[in-house]
Structure formats: C-alpha cells, structure tokens
Nucleic acid binder design. Sequence first.
DNA 1: GAACCGTGGGG
DNA 2: TCCCCAAGGTT
Length: 321
Amino acid sequence: MAQFGADDLRPDQLAALHRRITGWFAETARDLPWRERHCSPWGVLVSEIMLQQTPVVRVLPVWREWLERWPTPAALAGEPAGEAVRSWGRLGYPRRALRLHSAAAAIVRDHGGSVPGNYTELLALPGVGSYTAAAVAAFAFGRRETVVDTNIRRVHARLVSGVALPSPSLNAAEMRLAAELLPDDVGTSVHWNAAVMELGALVCTARAPKCADCPVRDSCAWLAAGEPPPSYVPKGQAWHGTDRQVRGAVMAVLRLADAPVPAEMFQREPADLGFAADGIGVPLSALHRLNSAPEQLERAMAGLLGDGLAELHQGGYRLPA
DNA sequence: GAACCGTGGGG
DNA sequence: TCCCCAAGGTT
C-alpha cells in the first residue's frame, strides 16, 4: 500500500520534528530510576527486560528490589535461577526472569561481569532481541541505534505514514523509516529514541490519543488525513481456559511455597485441599485457582518443566534450584 | 509468519 | 463486566 515515508519530509521539517519532540521530552519526561545518570548498564538491562509487555508502574517496585538485592550481574548469577523467578513476582511471563538469570551468567562468563555495550553482543544474550539490544546500547552506552518498540512504531505510523496503527508485525519498511528519521548526531539520537517512545507512551497512545497535548500535532499525517480508522482489527489473545492461565496459577503456588508442592496437591478437588496446605506456606486461595481439567493441568506442568520454570524434587514441584 | 508465553489496570 | 493492551522474544 502507498504510505508516506521519510522521503516526503524535507530536511528542515525533519529537524523541526527532532527539535519539538526532544524539547517536549526535556520538559515532561517521567523521572524513572533507570533513566538517571548514575544508573548502571545492568540496571538499564534489567529494566528493559522487565518492561517487555509490562507497564512501567508495575515494574518500578520490582526493579528497585532487584537492583538492591542484585546490584551486579555476578550477584544474580551467584544465586539459583528459582530465586530470580520468585522475586519476579507477578510481573508476568516468568521465562523472562529465567532468561535474565541466564544472561547474567553469560555476562560473567563471556564479558568479565560487565554488560557488553554493542548491539551484536547484547543481541546474543538470552532474552535480548532486536529492540532490547538497541535500547540498552542507546540508553546505557549512548550509542546511535535504531530503537523500534511498539510506541515508536505507533508514533511513526501516525505522524509520518498517516495510518492509525502500525502493521501487525514489525517489517523492513518500518525499520527503514525509523533509520531515516533517526538524528545524525549521536547525542541527539539517544534523546530522540527516548522521546519518541515517551510520546507514544503518554500522548500518542493506542486508545484515545491525547492529540491536544501533542507537540507535533500540526505535522501529523494521521490528523491531517482526518484520523482514518485502522485498516485491520488487532486480534486479542485468548486467556480463559488456556494453558497459560493454568501455568500462571501453578507458578503463583510455586512462588509462595517454601517446600516442594506434592504432585497430588495439583489434582485435588478444591473442597478437598485442606489436607496438605500446611507446611508448604501456600494459602488455599492460591490452590483453588488450580481447579482445571486434569489433562490440561498435566500439559501445563509438562510445559513448565520443559521450560525450566519448575522442577521435580522428592515427589513435589518447586522452582528451579 | 503464526502461535505461544502472564498479569492487572483502565476504558 | 468485558475487552484491550503494555519498553518483546522465542520457536
């Protein structure tokens, strides 16, 4: 389909976008701990992993606990993976905790305990994909990188391409556009990446964008086009009755337990659970959420074991030691 | 490329 | 209440 690209912007127009959006950022950016000067690259890396698909407000308290407890990659790598999973709390997608633990070990093993500063080495770390590698290189090391996340994609889609939403999945055209929009100056490029991301998070939001507060509303191709609706309907993820729901309930129990949870406890009828909740530190309310078809529970447990999120020990399930 | 992987707050 | 979706990555 024919969309506008950076080719339609004159150099002076592009410079004006850079100036307005970074200026807006300088005035209104949130004070986030991983943005502070003294924050270590490790702190930035931890924040980026936690922020994958998880809102800032929920990440903040967990990030603080993590950095206090594990101020360096070596500190985390020196503890069992299960401790990372447990302290992940309810951030969701607990495989991220596992991968972050593996990444810490790789940093100790391959990089002398210091987070690497270039894109390629970052990309090789477990749980670090193209977005996170670029973000850490830019925000922790001041590199000029083409950072593309869901916020940046949405801002580009509206501001430049004139459509309500970016394509369902990141494509080469979007990467090219982002690269063309990136300021040449290294320092400015870092601010630009952070600023566009912040604009997407606070103003150019997915639902009900606050266009009245937008510093570049008079340059927005989507507004100029009369706010055309999305050309497709994003399909949501199923939840009720899925394996993921069961996995989540199981993990909630394992995080709370201070001893291996007997396998039979996952198979009892809810009314029948009182027998063994004592001694493992798990409230009945958590166990009641496990009420699901035996076949599905078995599938979920097998998945968790296969992912390394749980292990069998003395006839019970526990977080990995 | 599509499917899968958690969680909870806001509209 | 229900649905959307949030600084993605891996298979």
